[in-house]
Write a protein that binds this DNA or RNA. Structure first.
Lengths: 204, 204
DNA sequence: ATAAGGTTTAACTAATCGGTTAAATTTATT
DNA sequence: AATAAATTTAACCGATTAGTTAAACCTTAT
């Protein structure tokens, strides 16, 4: 929280983030993090005693990009459609700015699912709030009635999955054309909004 | 292809599949694979010279669960809706039988995306066939007109993503109740079919 | 029986990697 | 200038791991 300037600690955290996110916990090397930060391995251990401690500092910070704060939006006093549009826009924007986060988080949570318990408590991850809002929209007759968990999962799937498989899409659909790929991602917010609305919103 | 009986080679391949899929290429240990196969490390290297060779044998075999043969279904001479239903059913069935494949394939393809080129050639991965079929359904007026890549990606996302994040869903939505989780996955085929049909099929 | 190939045992190499240490050097503080 | 803290250097430790080797042992077909 504290290190504001380009202090050594900040340089380390930035370097560690880069290396951990691209290589993962197991693939990352302390020497590489030190190089990336422009310091040496001894100093790296001088600041963060162990690789595990450093990783946890990074992971706990990065997790907010994967589970963003949606509670402000979802508790707004508007129609479900408006909330839906705002949430999808916000989520896709966030993912476009941090495209490698989904792959990283998936990898690490599959490696050690127990870490999720701590994170759920620490960051107040509570899908129930979202489920409740979906259910209330059904009660108001705004959307068709179905298991809200499936609704939520469908939306998250369409938002996150394309980023988690970015390398695959890049090869299979765009043959390496990063420019076209980025444009494709930019389109997704509107595509998903339209898709979900047509699928579940009741027309009057 | 050849080893039919419970030959040593078959035992090794089975053991390697188990270990690689659960631990990944980096996390897997040759000793553990040898133990799992009930043999020793020397014999393991006697059959498969290196870890990399063994891994490639496994990965090339496992990849068919991730990119199943959909061409037979999609080339059928029926309406798009019927094809859609068959494909989603087949895909969800496959994933329920091999729930850890998505996580594994994602992890490894993110680690080394270059491997995808070989696989695309070797297994004839050709999304264009599917894109063409989607476009033809639009021409026939069966579904609304939109970028077929988004359509395909939406469907695949809703099918695959929930399996890739199985540990997360298990904790966040089911608090470890594997029984309820499995039932939830069983529901998904129908949920996705209904969702997609409502989203893009034109009612007459 | 014997020859060949499959299998085990056990020790070893070479490389990698996280982490430590101690001394020297630089930088900032008083 | 003197002191303390930050940083570098360079060597090292201990553990892990992929892969090798050579000898012995077992199984099986000829």
């Amino acid at each position: 929280m504290e290190p504001k300037k380009d202090s050594t600690e900040e340089k380390i955290l930035e370097a560690a983030k880069t290396v951990f996110v691209t290589k993962g916990m197991e693939g990352a090397r302390m020497q590489e993090i030190a190089d990336e930060a422009g310091i040496n391995k001894a100093l790296l251990h001088y600041y963060f005693r162990s690789k595990e401690r450093l990783f946890e500092a990074i992971f706990s910070n990065v997790i907010q990009y994967a589970f963003p704060k949606l509670t402000q939006i979802i508790k707004t006093d508007t129609t479900f459609v408006v909330k839906l549009e705002q949430i999808i826009d916000a989520y896709i924007d966030l993912l476009r700015k941090h495209p490698y986060i989904p792959g990283f988080v998936l990898k690490e949570l599959n490696r050690d699912p127990s870490g999720l318990f701590k994170l759920a408590l620490k960051h107040g991850l509570n899908p129930q709030v979202i489920m409740d809002q979906i259910e209330m929209a059904m009660d108001r007759g705004e959307i068709v009635r179905m298991d809200p968990r499936h609704v939520g999962l469908n939306i998250v799937s369409m938002c996150v999955f394309p980023f988690a498989v970015r390398p695959i899409i890049n090869v299979l659909l765009f043959k390496g054309d990063e420019k076209a790929l980025e444009m494709f991602y930019a389109e997704r917010a509107n595509v998903i909004k339209q898709f979900v609305i047509d699928a579940i919103v009741i027309k009057k």
